[in-house]
Amino acid sequence: MPADDPKTLVSTDWLAAHLKDPDLRVIDASYYLPDMGRDAKAEYDAGHIPGARFFDIDEISDSASALPHMAPPIEKFMSRMRAMGVGDGHQVVVYDGAGLFSAARVWWLFKLMGKTDVAVLDGGLPKWRAEGREIEDMPPVVKDRHMTAQRQAHLVKDVTQVAAAAKLGDWQIVDARSPARFRGEEPEPREGLRAGHIPGSLNVHYATLLNEDGTLKRAADLRAAFEQAGVDLDRRIVTTCGSGVTAAILFLGLELLGHRDVALYDGSWSEWGQFEQLKVETG
């Protein structure tokens, strides 16, 4: 696995060694699609890494948007984090119950808000449990902590910007959905969406970046996954997926490869797939 980096990715060994650090905050960012048949909050209540706070991706979002879990306004993010006892000067580690599915989304949200001391737990809760490490079912004792944030607008793209990128070709658009969904061969899990992909986009299924145990692959293998899909790692990239969750896994992989000119299309296919005036490719 990649070396421990408190700004991107840390191992279970690293977290175990730092778990009692006074300025460490652990966040359970578990989230599941309806067809997964899992209840993230119920699983958190039943058992989580000691001290972990639960981050509700659907609630800590832009309630003014009809799209699923869009990035929240900066004021809402700061108030929710303050109430969770997460603030300035904290090292944050984010995990999820799938290994690596939704944790990268919350890592990206922190980056979007200008917070850089945040890492994803490699392998997440499954790896932590498999190693027989401590689990608790008690909610953490939370003390308010002031948080300042500054939105980093260059890390996110809206539909107008992505449409321009697709037309001009000045950004590569890389889609994290499965090959069958990308090609339009299977229906979208959300109703009312067309099948297919953004014209000119490339497909790097997020699962190709992961080992069987949910940990991220080594840098050489990450690089190969992108290059085999035709991605030029020297050019600008917009990551996209179904609703902006697994697109963050591609973002994390690119960050680990040292790629700094990356943005995430927050609306992703939940937005693009519903508007007839936006062109769609299949195959």
Rank of each mutant, 00 (worst) to 15 (best):
E186N: 02
T215I: 08
D261P: 05
S61Q: 06
R25E: 08
T12Y: 05
A195W: 11
P50M: 09
E212N: 15
K157Y: 06
M84Y: 07
M138I: 00
L252E: 07
V118Y: 05
A166V: 00
A219R: 11
S243A: 13
S243E: 14
L257V: 02
A104H: 08
A153E: 15
I60E: 09
L19K: 02
L24V: 01
L252T: 04
T239S: 13
M81D: 05
R38L: 14
D117Q: 13
A163P: 03
V86K: 04
A247Y: 10
D122T: 00
G99R: 04
D232F: 11
T215K: 14
G283Q: 13
K157L: 04
I237Q: 09
P126N: 09
Y31D: 02
D28M: 08
Q150G: 00
V162W: 12
E43P: 05
D45A: 13
W14R: 00
R177H: 08
V142P: 05
A103H: 03
L257P: 09
Q274R: 14
Q152D: 12
R235A: 15
A164W: 06
V120A: 04
G99C: 06
D117G: 00
N211S: 11
T148L: 06
W171T: 00
W128C: 01
E75H: 01
D266A: 10
H259T: 00
T282Y: 13
R218I: 03
T246Q: 12
V159H: 11
R183A: 15
I135H: 08
A104N: 02
P199I: 02
R181Q: 11
A164H: 10
R145W: 03
L193F: 11
D175P: 05
E188N: 04
R145V: 00
D56S: 04
A98I: 00
G230P: 13
K76C: 01
R190Y: 15
V245Y: 13
D213S: 10
A220P: 12
